[in-house]
């Protein structure tokens, strides 16, 4: 059976400043806004549709605050 890779987006809430670069430039539209904020009051992105993530990691590279990254898990 072919191995499949699933990607999960991790957000480090306490580092995020809510610039929303990740939300605006995600090519697959994984991320969205749901109005939640972190302890310092900055709006946080949310994972709107995790299944469509292609693992391109553009969000991770664009994030000025080192607050978002991609984890890949191999599943059968």
């Amino acid at each position: 059976m072919k191995k499949k890779t699933r990607y999960s987006v991790r957000i480090i809430a306490e580092r995020c400043k809510g610039c929303m670069f990740c939300v605006s430039f995600c090519p697959a539209g994984v991320l969205g806004r749901d109005g939640t904020a972190n302890a310092r009051g900055y709006p946080l992105p949310c994972i709107a549709s995790a299944a469509v993530c292609t693992g391109c990691a553009l969000c991770q590279k664009l994030c000025p605050d080192f607050a978002i990254f991609i984890e890949s898990n191999h599943v059968r």
């Binding site: 610039c19 670069f21 991770q60 590279k61 664009l62 994030c63 000025p64 605050d65 080192f66």
Partner: peptide, 9 residues
């Protein structure tokens, strides 16, 4: 919204 962090990345 500042981009310096992204360049550091």
């Amino acid at each position: 919204g500042c981009g310096i962090g992204a360049t550091m990345n």
